[in-house]
Write a protein that binds this DNA or RNA. Sequence first.
DNA 1: CGTGTTATTGACCAACATCAAACTTAGTGG
DNA 2: CCACTAAGTTTGATGTTGGTCAATAACACG
Lengths: 242, 242
Amino acid sequence: MTDYHRLIRRLETIAGLNDEDKLALRQLPLRKRAFDENRDLSSQGDKPTECCVILEGMAARYKIVSGGRRQIISLHFAGDLPDLQSLYLDRMDHGLFALTPVRAAFMPHESVRALIRRNDRINDILIRYALIDAAIFRQWIANIGRRTAYERIAHVFCEVYVRMRALTLTEEGSLHLPMTQAELGDATGPSPVHVNRVLQRMRKDGLIVSRGDIHAVTNWERLRSAADFNDDYLHLRQLRTA
Amino acid sequence: MTDYHRLIRRLETIAGLNDEDKLALRQLPLRKRAFDENRDLSSQGDKPTECCVILEGMAARYKIVSGGRRQIISLHFAGDLPDLQSLYLDRMDHGLFALTPVRAAFMPHESVRALIRRNDRINDILIRYALIDAAIFRQWIANIGRRTAYERIAHVFCEVYVRMRALTLTEEGSLHLPMTQAELGDATGPSPVHVNRVLQRMRKDGLIVSRGDIHAVTNWERLRSAADFNDDYLHLRQLRTA
DNA sequence: CGTGTTATTGACCAACATCAAACTTAGTGG
DNA sequence: CCACTAAGTTTGATGTTGGTCAATAACACG
């Protein structure tokens, strides 16, 4: 699986690509770079001149609020473009860091702009990419604002499971979520201690079994209903899980 | 002030428009419609064929989660395009309702598409519009996930104040926020009772004075610092408040 | 094997929810 | 103009969720 494949597969979760589109994508110059766990791929306030593609590992957008409290805004896997908006907004209003060791590639804005000027379908897909990103943010607002810690954590599990499956990054029933409990708390709201207690309850309730940061979904239907999860907001082209 | 003016002024908070751009915008057919308070302008699951412009009044995006709990996702004023994403995503993943009596206009997707095909600058502004929308969602995630009720409510006040000022919809120091305390809770998380107590504390702390739903900002600097508000995420072209 | 990180546990506390009632306000019809 | 009504606000009492602190246990890695 080449690095371009990951990107192509990701875009194909949005809409189909023909051979010409794929060829055009493969012309994009990729400057590759590895990041240690916890390193910033880019930081709030930066003015990027390239777009980032995750090739391997998992990254997250985040914001820091007063008192040093950190909120994780979104999670990103291989193929994702976690700062696509930098193509149009000059200044990063959030940071992007590596949840695991990450391999990433950077594509000059100019190359991406040239591509989308020439290829309407890819232009369209990238716009839809950004709009689906926004749809996921909306869902997170609703989760965090209106659900209990238990429901929120279950919801993140569902989202990660469905998104990774769409990218064929996971096997049926298995969910590798390489986040510490503290990070899971930063993504969903509760304190690390409370995350721990919620996870224990989820295990007792038979929704998941965990070994380290590998969580296996033992009862998808129960998990889904505990999370009140519905994948509509992901606007996936291909597989549905409902 | 014509209806087109509101839209034009809104887009000019993002980037400058020349006479040709403005003329092109004025060619867009507007089907106007009035909505009573609390009516849906569009509903989750809809497949709109038009984009909505708010002409007068205030509207909000929302989602309902299990148990009927409602989360307000974003607030919209005259000139806003609260379902711009429908141009690219066929199904509404949220509802849109009138917080006050609203006058709105609907523009056929086809007309908007024709416009952005012809006019690169407007295309660019609309993309940036959508991306700024997403930036606001990110900020809301951080607010709701990582701040106290007091800070969150103060933050919404700051955001509304700055956004409305950018649209010249408000006078200096005055903030008209026509939302009930229950709605304010739906936007920020806390229960109506708790919103009430927080507002009382904000008044006692000298941040605002209220008469009905008119809140006057009495001490912008204190309010701003209570909310830890920084308008970077709004990506405004014109005025800065910092 | 030691050392740092993460997970787990228990005790206690704060923020906020819920419930129920009273009060205020704005609108409506007689 | 006033009584009536409905919606929203305010208050008090009480309960729950989840935070904080601090200590211990389990791992993972060099």
